[in-house]
Design a protein around this nucleic acid. Structure first.
Lengths: 191, 191
DNA sequence: TGATTTCGATACGGTGCGGTATCGCAAATT
DNA sequence: AATTTGCGATACCGCACCGTATCGAAATCA
């Protein structure tokens, strides 16, 4: 890939401006949502000229995709020796990501993009969901080895179901706590 | 609740215009989503003056709420005497609504609107999901009476989980058929 | 018939955003 | 030092929409 071709003359692009743009974009995403956020507002909040944004990105989609990319973290595979401890860790982790205003909006934007753009759905599936699905399968495999669940449990299906429930509960918030709600649903799935 | 207060003088409000407005609103909702649809666009498509809309509704929320309300077809409650027959009927019914290109688009738009706009989510929940949730509960109650499922099953939770899975499978299509996939997930939930 | 209300149409001022261009200055390469 | 590119700022044009007002025609009631 592109490796440090710094041969270009002239002033280099400001990394601090770049950071400020991404930060402002994420903030606005969490505050007003994808639809309502404008390039102008991002530029103003970042203390940056519109030009500086348009020089980097040609669309809002592009900008926001990069902003989300910039805060992506590692996939963790809990291994506490107990299925429900592992699962609770995963739920807690998902809660921390999704239940903040930013996480909420990010999910909303992803769903919005994915549902109207199969290409993006595919990419998101491969790059984000698939790794998590596989690490969840490992958690389930370990539980099977410990005889905590039936050996013919379909880890993938359960992961999908869990994701669906989380998603649904995010869009239509239940009365009880999100975490407890998801946990309760999951207990049905794990028999 | 028809009160028939027709004592008002002057020209009555056109019911055909009213219908046209609701129809246009629903079409646009499915095509461009809640955020992106404008009153002007609704008026134009309905072949109606903006005035005619503003005379009836003071906000887009209000209009869309009424539009959704207007298509709240009789929610069917299958009663075949067998839980899985009932459930399959429901799944089949959901499939017919969601799996057409237009239905797909509509659901996608509704979801993305709801996820980025809590007001709309609330409206959609009350007017659309809630009635279906309650009729599903009846199906489960009957199954309990027939001893087909455990009596402490939480019908509401299962409905939500089922909805979540359907939603997830719509956005990220599984390899197998949507119907079979949903059915498989549901069999986990109903234990 | 006359009063009243709604009709579709159109125009209006206001707002906010998109996207481009320009300006004078700053920071890098050669 | 000369050149090249990025910088923030601002101005600009065009557009879509909001919400209101106004119009003449149409529909209804007293």
């Amino acid at each position: 890939m592109n490796n440090a071709k710094k041969k270009s003359p002239g002033r280099p692009r400001s990394t601090t401006s770049h950071q400020a743009i991404l930060k402002a974009a994420l903030e606005l995403l969490s505050e007003v949502g994808f639809e309502a956020m404008s390039i102008e507002a991002i530029a103003t909040r970042a203390g940056v000229g519109k030009t500086t944004i348009y020089r980097r990105y040609s669309s809002k989609d592009e900008l926001v995709a990069d902003a989300i990319e910039s805060i992506r973290e590692e996939v963790l595979i809990p291994d506490t020796g107990n299925l429900w401890s592992d699962v609770d860790t995963l739920i807690e982790n998902a809660a921390q990501i999704t239940l903040t205003p930013l996480g909420r909006q990010s999910v909303a934007m992803i769903i919005s993009s994915a549902s109207s753009n199969p290409g993006f759905a595919q990419i998101y599936w491969e790059k984000y969901l698939q790794p998590r699905r596989q690490s969840f399968a490992i958690v389930i495999e370990r539980a099977k080895a410990r005889n905590e669940v039936s050996t013919d449990l379909d880890a993938g299906l359960i992961f999908d179901a869990m994701s669906g429930i989380m998603l649904y509960a995010l869009i239509f918030p239940p009365n009880e706590s999100w975490t407890a709600y998801v946990r309760r649903a999951l207990s049905l799935l794990l028999g």
